[in-house]
């Protein structure tokens, strides 16, 4: 199909003897929200790391809009149009909210060392544009980042807002594909629902999203499609309801006995 944004093609990644991702294949289409689910240690984050350039697949390929990005460095993958967030929140804590978002644009800006040394008009213009863009991105989280907070350190934000800021930073890279690693982890149910709504809004705005999630409500409420994996292997793929009721998936989560009682 022509609207395939991401194509993971029999990707495998081993750590020592452990096949963290094993011959995994899936595709993401433009404008979709796809959830990647699976028990702890099933290889979800490793899959993200393969896509975003942390690891190179031992075999197989990762294609972004038909071009291989396997083996590229994270900054190159970012430049090609994939931004990500992290399972264990990685913000620039001692930088301001605004600066966090501005760093997200680093690879999209051009000012060189001479521009920066002398604050040339070119650099100042670029800076102004970036600040405007950053304001617009922060405004996509209504009420969460009022102007008064823009110059506060990121570390002063509440936990949920820090996770939102991480999403904002990823958006600043103008990604073709957004990877969210457990975006609502650690949030209370109300906050989770709000973030879920925001993820839907992002889809409305035209974003393509692949997210790892554990929260069933969010998975059901936000995703168009779900991919379940265990031990590095894809177990099931399809509509959220179908995957959740897939015997193999239930077994992966609850173990053999659980699957027996469930049936």
């Amino acid at each position: 199909m022509s609207d395939v944004v991401l194509d993971v093609h029999s990707a495998t990644k081993t750590f020592g003897g452990l096949k963290a991702v094993n011959d995994l294949s899936f595709q993401i289409h433009a404008g979709e929200i796809v959830s990647l689910i699976g028990p702890n240690g099933s290889g979800k984050t490793t899959t993200f790391n393969l896509i975003s350039g942390v690891y190179e697949p031992d075999s197989g390929d990762v294609l972004l809009r038909g071009e291989s990005i396997a083996g590229l460095r994270p900054d190159q993958v970012y430049a090609r149009g994939i931004s990500r967030t992290f399972q264990m929140l990685r913000l620039f804590s001692n930088m301001s909210v605004m600066e966090n978002v501005l760093v997200g644009m680093h690879g999209r800006t051009q000012a060189n060392i001479i521009d920066c040394m002398f604050h040339t008009p070119r650099m100042r213009r670029e800076e102004e544009v970036c600040v405007e863009k950053a304001r617009a991105i922060l405004a996509q989280f209504p009420g969460r980042f009022p102007e008064s907070r823009h110059d506060q350190p990121a570390s002063s934000l509440s936990y949920a807002n820090r996770r939102r800021l991480e999403i904002a930073r990823a958006l600043a890279g103008e990604p073709k594909l957004l990877l969210l690693d457990e975006p609502v982890a650690g949030m209370n149910p109300m906050e989770s629902m709000e973030v879920m709504q925001q993820i839907r809004d992002l889809k409305e705005a035209g974003h393509t999203i692949l997210m790892i999630e554990h929260d069933m409500k969010v998975i059901m409420g936000a995703s168009d499609r779900v991919i379940a994996m265990d031990h590095g292997v894809k177990l099931a793929e399809g509509a959220p309801k179908d995957v959740a009721n897939d015997p193999a998936v239930v077994e992966a989560y609850l173990g053999r006995r659980g699957a027996d009682t469930a049936s």
Binding site: S52, D75, S83
Partner: peptide, 13 residues
């Protein structure tokens, strides 16, 4: 300084 990995994923080399 704050987080090398996150900065690398933001396009910083």
């Amino acid at each position: 300084r704050e987080d090398e990995i996150a900065s690398h994923h933001s396009g910083v080399r």
